[in-house]
Computed example of a mutant assay.
Amino acid sequence: MAEVVVLGIDPGTRCTGYGVVREVSGQATLVAAGAIRPPSKAAMAVRLGEIFQGIALVIQKYGPHEVAMEEVFTHKNVSSALKLGQARGAAMAACAVHGLEVQGYNPMAVKKSIVGTGRADKHQVAYMVAQVLGSKARQECESWPADVTDALAMAVCHLNSRRLAKLVGAVDGMP
């Protein structure tokens, strides 16, 4: 089975988490994880530019083949949803400039894929991501902000979805 490298992104104007995961022969491993933190007092255009540049640098450094990103979900606060959409747009633009399509995932679907329930809390998601990604991730997991573990969960969910799609395709193609 060929190697695939997936960039997971959890967009936000205060903190955009990213996680890079490599899968070879069904085994997922942590490549890199971190957060892009634009200056909180900066104008929105500056913050979006920082997100764009940060994601572009991650793409250049790690060369992902595919990208998974959290979809915008309904917030009680319309202003928060708008800001999240803008952060997502900046990250998507960085991906597009590098020729990468973005697969969007609903947060509840990600939790269900990783933990088994769409109502899992952030600690449960972080724990399961660390278990899936191995010892390096388990050592570092506690020091990561939730945005980083959420981004890694996006990448792992994407890998799960890829595997399922291949299995379904294999079953559909059977005589």
Rank of each mutant, 00 (worst) to 15 (best):
M69Q: 05
V6S: 05
A96E: 10
S143D: 13
N106L: 08
E66K: 12
V171Y: 11
P38Y: 01
N160V: 06
V5R: 14
G85K: 03
P64I: 06
T29I: 14
V115N: 02
V6I: 13
K76E: 09
L164T: 13
E71L: 03
R22V: 12
I51G: 06
P64R: 05
V171E: 12
M174E: 09
A126F: 01
V132P: 09
I51Y: 02
E142Q: 15
M174S: 09
P64H: 07
L30I: 09
V4K: 13
E101H: 13
K76L: 12
K41P: 04
K122P: 07
T149I: 01
A45T: 14
T16V: 02
K122D: 07
L57W: 12
V97G: 07
A87K: 03
V31Q: 04
M92F: 03
L159A: 10
N106H: 13
R119P: 07
P11C: 06
R138V: 10
L57Q: 15
A56N: 11
Q103P: 01
V6Q: 05
G19Q: 01
K136S: 14
D147W: 01
V132S: 09
A165V: 02
A68S: 12
V132D: 08
A32K: 04
H98Y: 09
Q131Y: 05
K76F: 11
C141H: 13
